[in-house]
Design a protein around this nucleic acid. Structure first.
Length: 304
DNA sequence: GGAATTTGACCCTA
DNA sequence: TAGGGTCAAATTCC
């Protein structure tokens, strides 16, 4: 497994070099070939891993959904006996159709209706509950949004169920920070470039497109105006756009650190990758992602 | 007036 | 039994 991972890292380094240097676009080995090789390495590694250990990936890798800070689960559970441990620890069961995104905006291009808000224990900010506006047409998509105590500009959004409504599914605003490397993320960075710590604050300056403007403060709107320009400029020079065949018009998701799982990956992939262009050298950070479920790996790169 | 949001109450889960 | 998730009436917004 280690060998495969090292191969994958090496290939990722080559891919980054290729993307950073336009002169190398003529290289006989294409970016796509390299990406396929990376994918193969990770698939092989995960295959080895899953055959050797009993991995509860979903529960082991997802950070506390309650992002309001100290969780009563993690903190007090060690001190108190069994039954009381569960109190305050209730979490909706993670199903195959749930995934988590941390973003500087609540927007994701879909139409949601808020149906509830709750104060969450040990969380500074309330959790908001949204469902698809087409619920009564049978769409079961819902999401929960909560601001993070340590970094209130970040919205921790948990999605449940895919949209089944007819409304065109547009890719969400995947604001994935290009800097901090979460300990539970697979990073494509070369080791010498990994000078980050998990405690680095996440900065998410890029947002795109306004939709109906609901749930946004004036400050957020201003941020959005600024970010739209950034997003536009990034789209013009992003090698990922070329690589993934992203259309030059329309929706422009931007990736920073993201945690996602399940079938959502295919939606993301179908919309095309995009990473912040503020620093092209940030390279493949945009590929940082958490493998939430081993079985989902095939969905991450459905194009291959 | 219809759509969206708020919020207290109720239900479910651990 | 407490906390989280959802419902639905009341309220607000457009």
């Amino acid at each position: 497994m280690v060998v495969e991972l090292l191969k994958g890292r090496d290939t990722a380094t080559r891919l980054r070099a290729l993307l950073q240097d336009p002169r190398r676009r003529q290289d006989p080995v294409s970016a796509e070939q390299l990406a396929v090789e990376i994918f193969r390495s990770f698939s092989e590694s995960l295959s080895v891993l899953s055959s050797c250990v009993d991995v509860d990936v979903a529960s082991a890798q997802i950070p506390a959904v309650d992002s309001g800070g100290s969780s009563s689960c993690s903190g007090e559970s060690k001190k108190k006996p069994a039954v009381k441990d569960r109190r305050g620890c209730y979490k909706r069961r993670r199903t195959a159709d749930s995934w988590v995104i941390e973003s500087s905006t609540m927007e994701d291009g879909c139409a949601w209706r808020k149906y509830g808000q709750k104060v969450i224990l040990n969380s500074e900010y309330p959790r908001c509950y949204y469902r698809c506006t087409h619920k009564y047409e049978g769409c079961k998509a819902t999401k929960q949004v909560q601001r993070i105590k340590e970094n209130p500009i970040i919205y921790h959004t948990t999605y449940f169920n895919k949209h089944t409504c007819k409304e065109t599914l547009r890719a969400p605003h995947l604001i994935i920070d290009s800097d901090p490397i979460e300990p539970n993320l697979i990073s494509f960075q070369a080791p010498e470039a990994q000078d980050h710590t998990p405690t680095n604050p996440m900065i998410h300056p890029v947002k795109q497109e306004s939709y109906k403007g609901d749930n946004l403060s004036e400050d957020q709107d201003q941020d959005q105006d600024l970010s739209n320009d950034q997003a536009k400029s990034s789209l013009l020079q992003d090698p990922w756009q070329e690589f993934m065949g992203l259309e030059s018009s329309g929706y422009k998701p931007v990736w920073t650190n993201m945690i996602m799982s399940s079938s959502y990956q295919e939606e993301v992939a179908s919309a095309g990758f995009h990473h912040s262009s503020d620093d092209q050298s940030a390279g493949l950070h945009g590929l940082d992602l958490e493998v939430d479920q081993l079985s989902d790996i095939d969905n991450i790169f459905p194009l291959f």
